[in-house]
């Protein structure tokens, strides 16, 4: 087995655009769950809507900024539709409704009725909506090498998407850092602990939850854009399992922390890549076929999620005393 190549691959995973997209999605979920205690089990729905919004608007000829705005708008509308019936209900209801709503987005998106718009189950090709983003790059075309990493500068899985992706993640972190230290964040924290108490103190709990849902959802939608820029919009790749990966990432890094989602995402994808590469190099094809190795990786993710929640619910960076999970 080629250890250098393996390490380069694993390290490459840490800075990959997918990792940034998942980190961002987890930051959005962190606002919902870590800060407010909302059990959003449909984060992938926000990502998918963001991806659709961006891709469809771009294909329709909208400029980059307008397409991003369309994605954000889609997330806002979705959050409002989702929040109005459910934010007054108990937590586990919200979990069921959000997971159902995300599923509805996917079902509608992949429906043959909307083929002209969404491409149905085969989705939208990356090349049909990447150009505005790539054209916005200030760098010359070509490839660039940094140490062992060599990527195209602007085209698809590029340095450009890495720079923008991680830049957005950094901005989102700053936002969370500011909000967690503000009176606004304090109200959310209070709601996470006991919303009736906060209501009795004259705060409009419903409005705060809605703000949290919208803000986290918008961040999710932007994550969706970053996620699909180096690939295609595939409704079936952005379903329930994506939501569960985001949850695993958040809980791994630590809910209600600023850097938890980033650390979680990096660890998650790097570890998964490490497992896959090591197994591909050591387990003979007769024992485990390559798609089985893939599945083996996801089995480990599932088990990790279980063990994590049971034995270290505060994650790596979390503080047990301020445990965000299980506030009610």
């Amino acid at each position: 087995m080629d250890w250098t190549n393996l390490l380069v691959n694993v390290a490459g995973e840490i800075i990959a655009p997918t990792t940034a997209a998942y980190a961002l999605a987890a930051i959005g979920l962190n606002i919902h769950f870590g800060l407010t205690g909302l059990l959003n089990m449909g984060q992938a729905g926000f990502l998918l809507l963001g991806a659709y919004g961006f891709a469809i608007a771009t294909i329709a000829g909208w400029p980059l900024w307008a397409a991003v705005l369309a994605a954000i708008l889609a997330a806002v509308v979705f959050a409002l539709i989702l929040g109005i019936p459910t934010l007054k209900l108990r937590g586990d209801y919200l979990a069921i409704v959000t997971i159902a709503a995300a599923e509805i987005v996917r079902i509608v998106g992949r429906s043959t009725t909307l083929t002209d718009l969404t491409g149905a189950s085969s989705g939208l090709r990356g090349n049909s909506y990447k150009h505005t983003f790539q054209d916005a790059s200030p760098f010359p075309d070509g490839t660039w090498e940094l140490g062992p990493f060599e990527y195209a500068i602007n085209a698809s899985n590029s340095w450009w998407i890495r720079i923008v992706g991680w830049g957005v993640v950094a901005l989102a972190c700053l936002l969370i850092w500011l909000l967690m230290r503000s009176p606004w964040g304090r109200v959310l924290k209070g709601i996470r602990e006991d919303e009736d108490a906060v209501r009795s103190l004259g705060k409009n709990v419903y409005a705060y939850k809605m703000q949290s849902l919208v803000l986290g959802g918008v961040i999710g939608a932007v994550a969706g854009i970053i996620y699909v820029l180096p690939r295609a919009v595939q409704p079936d790749a952005m379903g329930r399992s994506m939501t569960f990966f985001i949850w695993t990432i958040l809980l791994l890094g630590g809910a209600a922390t600023v850097f938890g989602p980033i650390l979680g995402s990096m660890l998650f994808w790097a570890a998964l890549m490490l497992i896959k590469l090591v197994m591909r190099g050591t387990v003979p094809e007769t024992v485990m076929r390559s798609e089985q190795i893939e599945q083996f990786g996801w089995i480990i993710v599932g088990i990790t999620l279980m063990l994590l929640v049971i034995f270290r619910p505060q994650g790596i960076l979390g503080d047990k005393k301020e445990l965000a999970i299980n506030a009610h």
């Binding site: 691959n9 490459g12 995973e13 990959a16 655009p17 997918t18 990792t19 997209a21 998942y22 698809s156 899985n157 996620y227 180096p230 690939r231 295609a232 595939q234 790749a237 399992s241 994506m242 990966f245 994808w269 890549m273 896959k276 798609e291 893939e294 990786g297 996801w298």
Partner: peptide
């Protein structure tokens, strides 16, 4: 790198 495919591939 495989990373660009993320879970999309697998």
């Amino acid at each position: 790198d495989d990373g660009a495919e993320g879970p999309g591939g697998g």
